[in-house]
Amino acid sequence: MTAAAPAPAWASDAYAAALRSGRGPLFLRGADGRRLPLDVERWCARPAPADLTVLRRCAGSVLDIGCGPGRMVAALARAARPALGIDTAPAAVALTRREGGTALLRSVFQPLPAEGWWGSVLLMDGNIGIGGDPAALLARVRRLLAPGGLLLAEAAPADVDERLDVRLDPGGPGPLGPPFPWARVGPSALRTHARSTGWRPTGQWTVDDRTFLAFT
């Protein structure tokens, strides 16, 4: 495995400012000009009812990949559950720690603590798109989990399967961030990518128009 440095895109001033204020606008902007909204308000709030359905399914120690400002990690910490968040944005890691969670400034493709021993891994909020290669990400997650461990992933609301280069767009004054690879993966495509990398689907559910899948 080649270690990858934290992505500079998520260290941008626009992302840090949005997290500090707890609100957008903030978008992922594709090369074709399409803007995909990022739900900063939800990320910075306490876990929503849909998030709670994921938290209730977590087993053992939990690794939250792309934890953002840490709502999931902090909720687990409040429940005295062992959890670690990782993120490539310094502002996200700082906010997670401020909320009482444990977090590291780290890419999922860098060496991580307790590799092969995590009970559950979370890929929330579109984070199946990290790196722009869902199969590579899912293969990496398999190496992080303990035997029989649980992956809980959020799919895109539409049944899409696309790779794209995007930039962070503050939706107003201010420059676009540097380009980086991303992916959007709906439920059917997520199951296909998961099976191709050795995962077995064990559940799917939808709450408030958000769809989640579980794999072992």
Rank of each mutant, 00 (worst) to 15 (best):
T192G: 14
T96W: 07
L176P: 04
L63Q: 05
G148H: 10
L176Y: 00
S61V: 12
V121S: 00
G68E: 06
R97V: 13
T2F: 01
P134Y: 09
G66Y: 06
G131T: 14
W43Q: 14
G30A: 15
G30Y: 06
R29F: 03
G68D: 05
G33W: 09
L19W: 09
D165K: 00
P175A: 10
L95K: 03
T216V: 07
A45M: 03
L150R: 11
G198M: 06
L190T: 12
L19D: 02
A11E: 14
N127P: 08
G66N: 06
G60Y: 08
R195G: 03
A77N: 06
P69F: 02
G148P: 07
G186P: 12
D64P: 09
A136Y: 04
S21R: 15
P157S: 09
A11K: 07
H193E: 08
G30P: 02
L19F: 10
G126M: 09
A214C: 13
F109M: 07
V166T: 03
V73D: 09
D125N: 14
A94M: 05
G30F: 11
T192E: 15
C58R: 10
R78E: 15
P178F: 00
A92F: 05
L36C: 00
L105Q: 09
P173H: 05
S12G: 13
P113D: 12
D32H: 11
P201R: 13
D32P: 11
D13T: 12
L105E: 14
A92G: 11
A89N: 11
S196V: 12
L122K: 13
G186Q: 09
R56H: 13
V40T: 10
A77F: 07
A155K: 11
G68C: 06
A156C: 01
A59H: 13
D169R: 03
A14V: 10
D159T: 03
L123F: 08
A89P: 04
A92L: 07
L84M: 10
T53L: 13
R140Y: 06
Y15T: 04
A18Y: 10
G85W: 05
A83C: 02
F109K: 14
D208I: 02
G33A: 12
R142T: 04
T96Q: 05
G68K: 14
L145V: 04
E154H: 05
F215S: 08
R106K: 01
G186S: 06
L28I: 01
W118F: 04
G101P: 13
S196A: 15
L95M: 14
T96E: 07
L168C: 02
L36R: 02
G131V: 12
R140N: 06
